[in-house]
């Protein structure tokens, strides 16, 4: 099972909740849109997905 963090930039309203409560500090908001922080070590815990009010960030699971 392959798991990836997906960000739907079009739906992101830049509230910053996901970035503020990310346990690894693996997200940041730049110009009102969320981005991954490369090298911060996202562990795909999915807390961002649980708290995103706009459904703009989630963990995608795929068979691979």
């Amino acid at each position: 099972m392959k798991r990836d963090l997906i960000i739907n930039t079009e739906w992101c309203k830049g509230c910053g909740i996901c970035a503020a409560f990310c346990p690894k500090g693996a997200l940041k908001v730049v110009e009102e849109k969320v981005q991954k922080v490369e090298g911060a070590g996202c562990v795909l815990c999915g807390m961002c997905e649980q708290r995103c009010p706009d459904y703009a960030i989630y963990i995608k699971e795929s068979e691979e």
Binding site: I6, G14, I17, E49, Q50, C52, P53, D54, Y55, Y58
Partner: peptide, 29 residues
Amino acid sequence: TMNTADIIYKYMRPEHLPHIWCPGCGNGI
């Protein structure tokens, strides 16, 4: 826990999303 994409395609009407609520509004959660 289902992932958000599954919830959207199973339970929501994706053609009406993104919703109208303000940035940071708790209603989406």
